[in-house]
Simulated scan of single mutants.
Amino acid sequence: MSYEFLALPPSRETELVVKAFFKITSAEGDVRKDFLLPDGLPSFFYLQSSQPIETIFGETGQPISLQNGFYVGYSNTLVEFMHAGMNIVGASIYPVYFKMIFDISPSEIINRFAPVRIEALQAVADLMNSERDTMTEIVNVFEQYVTQQLTNHPGNYDFETLYRKLIGPGGYTLGVEQLAESLGFSTRALNSWFKQHFGMSPKQFMKLVKFNQALKHIYERTADVKLSDIAHEVGYHDQSHFIRDFKSICGKTPKELLGTSNSLSNRFRLF
């Protein structure tokens, strides 16, 4: 299966909000099956495809059919999809900013793709239909929208600081009580706040951060590094526990995942 994948860094004006802009292109052909892994980043994107794309979140999820248009989506599990060719442009957003930008809580789109219509972004559809390379222009449209939304909806410094701490080195080792105390919240209030801004509980989000830290080590490891070394590096004392947690998130063991080098998930690594 052949994909063209391009990731572009955001400008200085939007780098605190946008992890990366991306473009995914797959030529028309027979229907193919592939998957993406949860990276803790909600996204918005414009899809262009001659046939609907069937997507399924998790092992027991219901199929969701995506037609041409704009979508927002977010997952904490494996996303499988069937397609016969597609062209996608979009951006991965840090979750703490998502509601400010789209006025949609991540909890409303967890493990689903939801269609959206945003007038300020309609120029993207026209640019996608152009025969020339318009990615730079598309990113400019996206960035103008994000910048305007940030002007209209200023962020919360405490939330931003907490998020950076969570995704930083060793952030996944923080306990729920520690997080609550650092914000002056009760654990109940912290759980409510996390579900609103992260789409899941603190425990679930920390498990996802831990998964992506492990994933990064797995993809970057050298021949002399064992999976048990990676398990210990991300805080597991028991390798079997590490593998169970890993599989509970993505449906695959680390070894099984390494055998899927041609998948889109192997290219789409923005964690």
Rank of each mutant, 00 (worst) to 15 (best):
D133V: 00
K252L: 15
I24H: 02
M135T: 09
P10M: 01
M86L: 09
R244F: 05
F35G: 08
Y157L: 11
E4P: 00
Y97N: 15
I138G: 06
I218T: 08
Y157W: 03
T151Y: 06
H153D: 07
F81C: 07
K99Q: 15
K210F: 00
S240A: 02
F198Q: 14
E220W: 01
S265M: 10
E4R: 09
S75D: 11
T134E: 12
I109L: 02
Q178A: 13
G58V: 10
F81H: 13
Q67M: 06
I56V: 13
R12P: 03
N68E: 12
M100G: 08
F242S: 11
F268N: 08
F70S: 07
F113A: 10
N111V: 03
F44K: 15
E108S: 12
K247L: 05
Y3P: 02
Q67A: 02
N87L: 00
M82P: 00
Q122H: 14
G155R: 06
T253E: 08
D126W: 00
A7N: 10
F242P: 09
G69F: 04
P38N: 07
G175Y: 13
T161V: 07
T161P: 00
F98I: 14
A91Y: 12
Y46G: 05
R112H: 02
R32Q: 12
A125Y: 07
V89Y: 13
P63V: 03
V31A: 05
I93M: 15
R267N: 04
I104R: 14
A123C: 04
R112Q: 10
I218E: 11
Q196G: 04
R188S: 10
Q62F: 02
M128Q: 11
A7L: 04
K247I: 01
L41A: 02
M86K: 12
E220Y: 01
I64M: 03
L270Y: 07
S43E: 15
A27G: 06
Y3V: 01
L174C: 07
A20Y: 03
S263E: 10
V18P: 01
Q196F: 03
E220N: 08
